[in-house]
């Protein structure tokens, strides 16, 4: 047979041909040649039968289904990913390991970092509000300008009782004439 002329039944290319025949992957002409060879060679027929039997035993392999929550869990993850896609955009030119499961993922923010950041924000806000509501020192000084201008006089007077006494006597009333002695 032409197809088998330079091959032995033990050669890898011969087995490839038989397997391709079993898989229905041989073209029509080659299929016919293999079938002719099989019809005239019982040893080859037995070999093909064993190959076929081993293959059929694979039907016993379990085919476990995905768990009940698989699709809902997957779709929920996709929704989360979709929400963050804009924030975690993949690079335009991904490296050759684009399918690497160890590819960088969005960084998880630790609670400590989150709390620290919150504290800083609150501090800054407090500072800003304080700056906006507090009156400048210059305003306080302007309010007390009259007092400041006469501070030397007030110091000489000593206390307020003395001033009240002077007021009762009318000393401070410049429009009233002084009492006769």
């Amino acid at each position: 047979m032409a197809i088998m002329s330079d091959e032995t039944p033990q050669s890898p290319s011969f087995t490839e041909k038989l397997v391709a025949y079993l898989d229905g992957e041989l073209p029509e002409a080659a299929t016919r040649e293999v079938e002719q060879a099989l019809s005239s060679d019982p040893a080859m027929r037995s070999d093909v039968e064993k190959l076929n039997r081993a293959w059929e035993l694979l039907d016993l392999l379990p085919r476990p289904n995905a768990s009940g929550e698989f699709s809902s869990r997957t779709l929920a993850t996709l929704q989360v990913v979709d929400g963050t896609t804009e924030l975690v955009a993949e690079p335009e030119t991904a490296p050759t390991v684009a399918l690497d499961t160890s590819a960088p993922r969005p960084l998880a923010v630790s609670p400590l970092v989150a709390w620290s950041a919150g504290l800083v924000v609150v501090s800054l806000l407090g500072f800003a509000v304080g700056r906006m509501t507090a009156r400048p020192n210059s305003d306080v000084w302007l309010d007390d300008l009259t007092l400041i201008e006469h501070i030397d006089v007030y110091r000489e007077l000593g206390n307020a009782d003395f001033l009240r006494d002077l007021k009762q006597r009318g000393v401070l009333d410049e429009r009233r004439p002084p009492e006769p002695r």
């Binding site: 890898p12 391709a20 898989d23 992957e25 064993k50 190959l51 081993a54 293959w55 035993l57």
Partner: peptide, 16 residues
């Protein structure tokens, strides 16, 4: 083709 051929040979040898 080569890969599947060797795989089926191995399966046959194991299960035969």
């Amino acid at each position: 083709k080569s890969l599947l051929s060797r795989a089926r040979e191995n399966l046959k040898a194991y299960l035969e």
